[in-house]
């Protein structure tokens, strides 16, 4: 029992510093969700059902722009497709676990939990049976708890923030900040540029369907540039 608790607590401890970056996002989501008219219970429930920061911020922004349910859902789903990469990456480490463990760890598989847990899997399991999934669980639950708590904090504060403060402008600012961190290579830059230009060119399409199409065009541009780069090498 002792080693399980040790692994679990080590996961919690190593995940903790990342919460400095997570908590403002959760609060921003909570504030934004109320600002675009989401009921309090649904704003919190979404943090449990979707449990993906970027997608939840996207949903809030698109609700604010009066987009239709289908374009919002499609955009959020497209954005979350990247979790398949994480799923593929941890698959070999959790394959031996019973199904209930795999379901639980899959639910907790977010960007930040993946980033910490995969580093533990890069280190040896230690003597005896492999208990590194307890470490993974510690990472995932720490993040989950902080996400729910920061959502609740955002909801509590959000009701008191006057609309003329334009607090929802922090959402596109977040996207700009993440964009500059993400686009370091040619293919990513092409994906971003094509998507941004396409969204303006397709602005007249109803229900913000132009946004979904623009993201798809950006993806294709990124993949094309990446393939050309590979061919050259």
């Amino acid at each position: 029992m002792g080693r399980r608790v040790d692994e679990f607590l080590a996961g919690c401890r190593d995940e903790a510093p990342l919460q400095l970056g997570v908590i403002p996002f959760g609060m921003l989501y909570g504030i934004g969700a109320l600002a675009v008219g989401m009921p309090v219970w649904l704003a919190q429930l979404t943090s449990m059902l979707v449990f993906a920061g970027a997608a939840q911020l996207v949903i809030v922004q698109m609700l604010g722009a009066a987009a239709g349910a289908l374009p919002i859902g499609l955009t959020a789903v497209l954005l979350n497709l990247r979790h398949m990469l994480y799923s593929a990456s941890v698959a070999e480490h959790v394959r031996h676990l019973p199904r209930r463990w795999r379901v639980l760890l899959a639910y907790l598989l977010t960007d930040e939990a993946y980033a910490v847990a995969i580093l533990r899997y890069a280190r040896p399991a230690g003597p005896g049976p492999d208990l590194r999934h307890w470490y993974f669980l510690g990472c995932g639950l720490t993040l989950w708890g902080c996400w729910q708590l920061s959502t609740a904090l955002g909801i509590a504060f959000g009701a008191r923030i006057p609309p003329e403060w334009d607090i929802d402008f922090a959402v596109p600012l977040t996207f700009i900040a993440l964009l500059t961190l993400l686009v370091k290579e040619r293919a990513g830059q092409a994906a971003a540029l094509v998507a941004a230009l396409a969204v303006l060119a397709l602005a007249a399409l109803p229900y913000r369907l132009g946004l979904v199409l623009a993201i798809v065009l950006g993806l294709l541009a990124g993949a094309a540039v990446a393939r050309r780069g590979e061919a050259r090498r």
């Binding site: 996207v58 959402v171 964009l179 994906a191 998507a195 969204v199």
Partner: peptide
């Protein structure tokens, strides 16, 4: 395709906003 989802989405969302 998965690798470029985040940059494409964030750029399109920021431009549209």
């Amino acid at each position: 395709l998965c690798r470029h989802i985040a940059p494409a989405s964030f750029a399109a969302l920021a431009a549209s906003e």
